[in-house]
Design a protein around this nucleic acid. Structure first.
Lengths: 293, 293
DNA sequence: GCCATCGTGTAATGATCACTACAGCAGGAC
DNA sequence: GTCCTGCTGTAGTGATCATTACACGATGGC
C-alpha cells in the first residue's frame, strides 16, 4: 500500500493513543472516543462534520482531539485510521479484541470472552422462545404474587431480578438468604403465587426443600439453573438451563443474567408501566441525567 | 455474513456489484476497481481526488464508476463502502448470532443477544489489558483493604463482586446501600484502602460525594461505569468503561458482570487460595457436588 | 478519408469541508 | 459572593471537494 503520507512521526496505533490519553480527555472528547471505539474507529472515516454530529460534539472538538492524540489535524488523523483499518482488513479473520500483538490472544479476557460467547449462544439455543414469552407474560401479570430466591452465589442474580421486577410491578418479594425466615413467606404462597429460584451447581439442599414445600402449597416454580440441572427441576413448572463454565475457578452466571435482562425488557414492554417508573424517580429525586448537553 | 447495511436502496454488497459489472467496465474503470479490490475497498475511503490519483485515472472516471454500480454519486458510494467495512470490522471475537430460524430474528432474545454481543465486544475493545492486569494484582493483594459500593441498580453487581472477593481474600467489605452508615467505613479508608465503585447513568450524587471524601483520605478508587462515564471518573485511579445500551427500558450491566467475572478469575489465579475455599466449604458443609456425571 | 461514437481528461462551478477566532459558560479557588 | 481557568460551541474563512460541461483523441463503420 502507498504510505506516502508518512503520518505525523508517531507510529503507534490510534486505539492505543486513545487509551493512553483517555485520562487526560475532557467530557466532550470522551463522547467522541466512545463513538469511535464503538465500531473500531470506522466512524472516523466520515467527514469531520458527520463524525461530530454522530458524537454530538462540535467540529472544533474533533480537531482538538486529533491534535491531543498527536496528529496535525483531522486529515492526518483520518489517514492514520484508514491505514489502521486497512492493516486489520488484510488479516484473514478480523479479530476485534487485540489492536495488538498476538500476546493478547491468550489473555484471560480473550479466553473468557470466547467462553462467555459460547455459553450465551448455547443458552439461547436451548431456549424455547414460546416458553420465554409465556414466562414473561406470567411474570408481568400483577395479580400473581412473586417471590424471588437465590443460592449462595446466585443471590446477586436474584437480587438483580427482584430489583427490576419490584419497580415494574407490585407484589414482588425477595426471600432472605437465611432459611430460618422462609416459613413466614411460605405461608402466603398459594396457587396464585410464583416462586423464582436460582440454583446452580453445588445445588443447595435448603432450596430444594423449600421448593418441595412451595409446590405442596400449590404455587408455581420458575427455575434458573445450569446445564446439568438442579434437583429442583422436578418441582419447577418452567426451567431455564444456562451454561456456566468459563476458564475460572468459579462458574459464570452471565448467561443467567442475560435471561434476566431479556425477561425484564419483555416484562417491561408487556406491563408498559412507564408512569410507575416516572413516579418512582420522582420519589427518589435522582432523575437528573449528567450528559453534559 | 450479515448484510445489514441498508445503503441506497440496493442491498447488495459493493464488492458483488463490482464483480457483476466487471465485464461492462472500461479500461480506466477497471484500473479503478483493481485498486479498490486490492485492499478490500479501503482505498475508497479517501477523497475522490486521492483515489483517482492512486488508480491513475481522473476524478470523473470515479464518479462514472460509482453511477455504473448503481450509486447516486461518490459520497453515496463511499458511504456504502464505509458501512460494509464497518460490518466486517464488527465481526465479533464472540459472535452471538441469532438463534436458528429467521422467524426468531426479531424476537426480543435475538435482538438482545446482538446488542449484548456488541456491548461486550466494544467493552473489551476499549479495555487496556495492562490496566486490567494491574487492577487484578492490586485487588489480589491481601494487605490492601477493599470496599465495594454500588448504586441503585448496580448494587447487585457490587454484591456479586463482593461475594466472590470475600471468599478469595480477607479484608473485603460491602458498603451498605444507605449513605447514613457510610461514615463509619470512611473512617478506616487510608492510603492502603481501595474503594470499588459502580456507577452507571443516572449517576448518583451520593456516590460522587463519597468518592471525593474517600480520595481526600488518600484511598484509591476503582470505578466501573458506562460508556459516557460517571463524574466519579475524575477521582478514580482506574476506570472501566462498559457499554450498557440494549433494546430495553433498562440499561444492561452484563458487560460490567463480564469484567467482574474475568477479574475474579484472574484474582483467584493470582491468589491461588484454594485452601481458603476448601476451608470455607468445610465450614458451610455444602461441599457435596451434584453433577450428574 | 470522413464522420460517428465512445472513452477519457481538463477546467470551471458550487458545495462541503477543515480550521481559526472568539465568546459564552461552568466549575473551582479564594 | 468574585474572580479565574479551562472547556465548549458558534460563526466565519479559505481550502478542498464532488460534480458538471466540454474538448480532445482513439476507434470503427462506411
Amino acid at each position: 500500500m502507498n504510505r506516502n503520507p508518512p503520518k505525523s512521526g508517531d507510529q503507534r496505533l490510534v486505539l492505543d493513543r486513545i487509551r493512553d490519553k483517555q485520562s487526560e480527555l475532557t467530557a466532550a472528547e470522551r463522547r467522541l472516543t466512545a463513538v469511535l471505539m464503538d465500531d473500531s474507529l470506522v466512524a472516523g472515516m466520515q467527514s469531520i462534520t458527520k463524525l461530530a454530529e454522530a458524537a454530538e460534539v462540535s467540529t472544533p472538538t474533533v480537531i482538538r482531539l486529533a491534535r491531543k492524540l498527536g496528529f496535525e489535524g483531522f486529515p492526518d488523523f483520518q489517514a492514520a485510521i484508514r491505514e489502521e483499518i486497512a492493516a486489520r482488513m488484510k488479516e484473514p479473520l478480523a479479530k476485534l479484541d487485540a489492536p495488538s500483538t498476538t500476546e493478547n490472544k491468550d489473555h484471560i479476557v480473550s479466553r473468557f470472552a470466547m467462553a462467555v460467547s459460547h455459553n450465551i449462544n448455547a443458552t439461547i439455543d436451548r431456549l424455547d422462545p414460546a416458553e420465554f414469552d409465556l414466562v414473561a407474560r406470567l411474570l408481568a401479570d400483577p395479580s400473581r404474587a412473586l417471590y424471588v430466591l437465590g443460592g449462595r452465589i446466585t443471590r446477586s442474580n436474584a437480587h438483580y431480578f427482584f430489583n427490576h421486577l419490584q419497580i415494574i410491578r407490585p407484589g414482588v418479594s425477595l426471600l432472605d438468604s437465611s432459611p430460618s425466615v422462609w416459613p413466614q413467606s411460605l405461608l402466603d404462597m398459594d396457587e396464585r403465587a410464583t416462586l423464582i429460584v436460582f440454583d446452580i451447581r453445588r445445588y443447595e439442599k435448603e432450596l430444594e426443600r423449600l421448593a418441595s414445600l412451595v409446590v405442596g402449597q400449590g404455587a408455581n416454580i420458575i427455575l434458573f439453573t445450569d446445564q446439568w440441572g438442579s434437583p429442583i427441576e422436578k418441582y419447577a413448572k418452567h426451567t431455564f438451563r444456562t451454561l456456566v463454565e468459563v476458564p475460572s475457578s468459579w462458574d459464570s452466571t452471565l448467561a443467567i443474567n442475560f435471561l434476566i435482562e431479556a425477561l425484564v425488557a419483555e416484562i417491561q414492554t408487556l406491563h408498559s408501566s412507564t408512569d410507575r417508573i416516572a413516579a418512582l424517580e420522582e420519589m427518589i429525586g435522582e432523575s437528573r441525567i449528567f450528559r453534559s448537553n
